[in-house]
């Protein structure tokens, strides 16, 4: 199961890398969103996917599932959500002032 998950993570990272390297800003942002999904899966996999009971002493007497990766992922999801929202607004403003969403045209002048 772990190896299947890691391959899936690999595919997600590949797609995300492809998107990030493109010239269109929206695709770049989609790429970063995909990247964050990939790493969340990676954290889950690294905490090992073994089956176990809920980690509550009153409900069962083990073996328990490691709950920590879920907590980490939850935190990471919130952060990546906030950052993505911010980047989208920033892109919108950049598009408004610079009149382009092509990264090639956003490079800046040679004298700067």
């Amino acid at each position: 199961m772990e190896s299947v998950m890691v391959i899936l993570v690999g595919i997600l990272v590949t797609v995300a890398t492809y998107l990030i390297l493109s010239r269109n800003l929206i695709r770049v942002i989609l790429g970063t969103a995909l990247l964050s999904h990939a790493v969340h899966l990676l954290i889950l996999t690294m905490g090992s996917l073994k089956k176990g009971n809920v980690p509550l002493l009153s409900d069962s007497d083990g073996p328990y599932t490691d709950a920590l990766p879920q907590a980490l992922i939850l935190t990471a999801i919130v952060i990546s959500f906030a950052v993505t929202a911010f980047v989208l607004v920033l892109t919108f403003r950049t598009y408004g002032t610079n009149k382009t969403d092509d990264l090639q045209k956003l490079r800046g002048n040679a004298d700067e």
Partner: peptide, 10 residues
């Protein structure tokens, strides 16, 4: 500023 900040964020 917006142009550079976009690169910084990414």
């Amino acid at each position: 500023q917006l142009r550079e900040s976009l690169k910084y964020v990414l």
